[in-house]
Amino acid sequence: MHKLLQVKEEAEFLRAELDRYSHLWQSDRKAVFQEFLTYSKQLGPEDLELEKTPPTLRDFQREIQVLHTLSSEVTYLDDVIILHGWLQVDLRPFTASLLSVILDWKHMYTDFLLESASKSLQQEIQPVGDDDEMSSSFPLMETILLLEAAGVELPEHLAAQLKC
């Protein structure tokens, strides 16, 4: 019975270590992203009355970098862990699922930037009289460079328009 309790303790310790990633699958991605678009960060309990501050490209870069760092950490998790010398825990399914969730988060940010770049390019090709829409987009070349640095391949139509 003593060995079983020791294994349970080790298993609980492992779960606690892996819980540091739980916000990735427990948080409502759309709500978190909306907070980011409104306040340029995810709100915490201490952020009760915060001024609206739309994100900059640097804010997007920060979030993408955090996700890249998490992805790297998860990639280096052990495939199999032996608890108390006899209980084998296979982390490969967990790791694969977590990497997929991290990729979903990353796509949320990069898809927004791709859409912004596409709109900016359209506005350069066919200028619109609405100045408000122009001010809401990011500088095109900086956005493209950020996307490329994040490993995002530009869609063919966007790449073709950039070459013109």
Rank of each mutant, 00 (worst) to 15 (best):
Phe36Arg: 09
Leu140Gln: 07
Phe112Leu: 02
His157Lys: 12
Leu43Ser: 03
Glu133Met: 13
Leu113Gly: 01
Ala31Glu: 14
Ser100Phe: 05
Met141Asn: 12
Glu115Val: 00
Leu48Ser: 11
Ala159His: 10
His68Val: 14
Leu103Arg: 05
Thr53Arg: 07
Glu73Ser: 11
Thr75Arg: 10
Thr38Asp: 08
Leu4Glu: 13
Thr110Asp: 02
Leu147Ile: 02
Val74Thr: 13
Ala159Asn: 06
Arg58Cys: 04
Glu153Asp: 11
Pro93Gly: 01
Leu18Thr: 00
Thr56Trp: 03
Gln34Gly: 07
Leu147Gly: 06
Ser100Thr: 12
Glu12Leu: 15
Glu17Trp: 03
Gln123Phe: 14
His84Gln: 15
Glu63Leu: 03
Gln122Asn: 06
Arg62Ala: 08
Ser135Arg: 09
Leu37Lys: 07
Leu5Ile: 03
Glu156Ala: 14
Lys3Phe: 09
Glu17Thr: 03
Leu5Asp: 14
Thr38Ile: 06
Phe112Pro: 10
Ile82Cys: 07
Ser135Asn: 04
Ser137Glu: 04
Thr143Phe: 09
Ala150Val: 03
Leu70Pro: 04
Glu142Leu: 13
Asp78Gly: 00
Ile82Phe: 02
Ile144Asn: 08
Met134Arg: 11
Leu147Thr: 00
Glu10Leu: 09
Glu153Asn: 12
Gln61Cys: 09
Leu99Trp: 01
Lys41Glu: 08
Thr53Phe: 02
Ala150Cys: 02
Tyr76Pro: 05
Met141Cys: 11
Phe60His: 11
Asp130Tyr: 01
Thr95Ala: 13
Arg62Pro: 11
Leu146Gly: 05
Val89Thr: 05
Val66Thr: 07
Asp131Ala: 13
Ser135Tyr: 01
Glu35Tyr: 01
Asp79Arg: 01
Gln161Gly: 09
Tyr109Ala: 00
Thr143Gly: 10
Asp131Cys: 04
Ala31Met: 08
Asp90Cys: 06
Ala96Val: 09
His84Asn: 15
Trp25Ser: 10
Leu14Asp: 04
Glu35Asn: 04
Tyr21Phe: 11
Thr75Ser: 15
Leu146Arg: 06
Ala149Gln: 13
Glu148Cys: 02
Met134Trp: 10
His107Ala: 07
Ser40Arg: 04
Gln6Cys: 03
Gln126Ser: 12
Gln61Ser: 11
Leu18Ala: 02
Gln126Cys: 13
Ile125Val: 14
Asp131Trp: 06
Leu37Asn: 03
Asp131Pro: 00
Glu46Arg: 04
Glu10Asn: 07
Leu24Ser: 03
Lys119Phe: 11
Phe60Asn: 05
Trp25Met: 01
Ser120Thr: 15
Ile64Pro: 06
Pro54Asp: 00
Glu73Ile: 13
His84Gly: 05
His157Phe: 11
Leu48Gln: 10
Gly44Arg: 12
Ser72Gly: 14
Gln122Ala: 09
Ser22Trp: 00
Ala117Trp: 02
Tyr109Phe: 15
Thr56Val: 01
Glu124Pro: 01
Glu63Ser: 13
Gln161Phe: 10
Phe13Glu: 14
Ala149Trp: 01
His2Leu: 13
Leu48Asn: 07
Ala16Gln: 12
Gln26Pro: 01
Glu17Ile: 03
Glu35Gln: 14
Met134His: 06
Val128Met: 08
Pro93Val: 02
Gln88Ala: 06
His2Ser: 12
Ser27Met: 02
His107Arg: 10
His23Cys: 06
Gly129Phe: 10
